[in-house]
Amino acid sequence: IEKFKLLAEKVEEIVAKNARAEIDYSDAPDEFRDPLMDTLMTDPVRLPSGTVMDRSIILRHLLNSPTDPFNRQMLTESMLEPVPELKEQIQAWMREKQSSDH
Rank of each mutant, 00 (worst) to 15 (best):
H102Y: 12
L36P: 00
G50D: 03
W93C: 01
L80I: 04
K3E: 06
E22K: 04
K5T: 07
M94V: 14
K17Y: 06
E9A: 15
E85G: 13
I1R: 09
L6R: 15
F32V: 01
H61K: 04
L40R: 01
N18K: 07
V15R: 12
D34Y: 00
Q73K: 09
I23M: 13
E13A: 12
E2G: 08
M37G: 00
V11A: 11
S99V: 01
N64E: 07
A28T: 14
P35A: 01
E13Y: 15
E77T: 07
S99H: 06
S65N: 02
D27Y: 07
S56Y: 04
A92T: 10
N64V: 03
V11M: 11
P82T: 08
A8E: 13
V45A: 02
D24G: 10
K5I: 06
I1L: 06
T39N: 07
V15W: 03
P66L: 09
I23A: 13
A19V: 11
W93Y: 04
L80M: 03
T51P: 15
M74L: 14
E22G: 05
P66S: 08
A21P: 11
T42A: 12
M53K: 00
P66Q: 08
L6H: 09
S26N: 14
A8L: 10
L36M: 01
R33K: 12
P84T: 14
M37T: 07
L62V: 02
E2V: 07
M74R: 10
E22Q: 07
V83M: 08
K10E: 12
N18I: 08
T76Y: 06
T39F: 12
M37F: 00
K87M: 13
R72L: 01
E13G: 11
Q73G: 02
Y25N: 14
T67L: 01
H61E: 06
A21S: 10
E9T: 08
I58T: 03
L36A: 01
A8G: 12
E81L: 03
R46I: 07
E96Q: 11
R20A: 13
D101Y: 06
R20G: 10
V52L: 04
K10R: 12
I14R: 05
M74K: 11
L63P: 03
